[in-house]
């Protein structure tokens, strides 16, 4: 991978909140142009922090990149603010969807084009294009966003981000709390946007299996460090990943009860 093919290049960043809480120790990752990269890990591992460091939303949470560099599209993001990043074509879809509840679905999506200077006609044209990916939203476009379902709200959040015409999307747990069927639907849309619109994607997920199946490359982080990285294929077949994140051991599926049983057996043996 040469640098010019990477749209995002994070080198050894360290992030602290409130000047004291160390959230990321040493994270490096690359997103090649036009690819989907998954950032995996448990709660509190540092996935959201990494994404916010990239979109420069950290500042609004009293966080700061204290070491390392982040390069987006060949330039350092150090001096940028979130609205400038959107102008450069990088949009983050925040964790928990965060729709504008009192606005209609369509107003939500149009708000995404705020950073672009578009005429009414242009906006309608863009809207129609967006609706081809999110057919379900077109039907609900006059409803108040707060009254739509969780899956629809996630679609609104992604559609809204797409209205800014991004080169790169940062998706923070897009499938959180969604039923498996919707998880698949969301990922299908994400894949489609990636392939047809050529948007590069960095997504943070806890749903390791689905995320890797829909990505080109993956990074696994734990307590603010990258523990493992590789192509999605290699990670899916990696024994460690299988055991720790997919719940599959060499002997086949393993659940929590089995683990407890094993533990009590080993204890007995020691006694």
């Amino acid at each position: 991978m040469s640098t010019s093919t990477n749209i995002l290049d994070i080198k050894n960043i360290e992030v602290t909140y409130d000047n004291v809480i160390l959230a990321l120790h040493d994270v490096s990752l690359k997103v090649p142009k036009g690819k989907v990269v998954a950032l995996l890990g448990a709660n509190g591992a540092g996935k959201s922090t990494t994404l916010k460091a990239v979109s420069t939303m950290l500042a609004s949470e009293r966080g700061k990149v204290t070491k390392g560099t982040i390069e987006y599209d060949g330039t350092s993001i150090e001096k940028q603010n979130p609205s400038q990043m959107v102008g450069l074509g990088m949009v983050q879809v925040l964790e928990g969807r965060r729709c504008f509840g009192h606005l209609t679905v369509e107003e939500n999506i149009i708000a995404g084009a705020y950073s672009r200077k578009l005429s009414k006609g242009d906006i309608n044209q863009e809207l129609e294009k967006i609706y081809t990916y999110f057919i379900r939203l077109k039907e609900r476009r006059k409803s108040q966003a707060a009254f739509t379902s969780g899956g629809e709200q996630q679609m609104i959040a992604v559609a809204r981000a797409m209205m800014a015409k991004p080169k790169m999307l940062l998706l923070d747990e897009p499938t959180m709390g969604l039923a498996p069927q919707l998880v698949a639907e969301i990922f299908n849309i994400v894949k489609e946007l990636n392939q047809k619109e050529g948007v590069s994607i960095l997504l943070a997920e806890q749903n390791t299996n689905v995320a890797l199946k829909n990505s080109d490359y993956g990074y696994i982080i734990e307590t603010g460090r990258v523990m493992l990285d590789g192509t999605a294929q290699s990670l899916l077949s990696n024994d460690q990943v299988k055991e720790l994140y997919l719940g599959i051991s060499k002997k086949g599926r393993k659940n929590f009860r089995d683990v407890l049983k094993e533990e009590s057996l080993t204890k007995k043996k020691i006694n």
């Binding site: 979109s55 939303m57 609004s60 979130p82 609205s83 990043m85 959107v86 102008g87 949009v91 983050q92 879809v93 925040l94 965060r98 729709c99 504008f100 509840g101 009192h102 606005l103 107003e107 708000a111 995404g112 705020y114 950073s115 959040a157 809204r160 981000a161 209205m163 800014a164």
Partner: peptide, 15 residues
């Protein structure tokens, strides 16, 4: 109106 609803989300889409 977007800022009134969720200032963080508004800033994430470049408002």
């Amino acid at each position: 109106r977007a800022v009134a609803d969720d200032a963080g989300a508004a800033s994430s889409i470049g408002i």
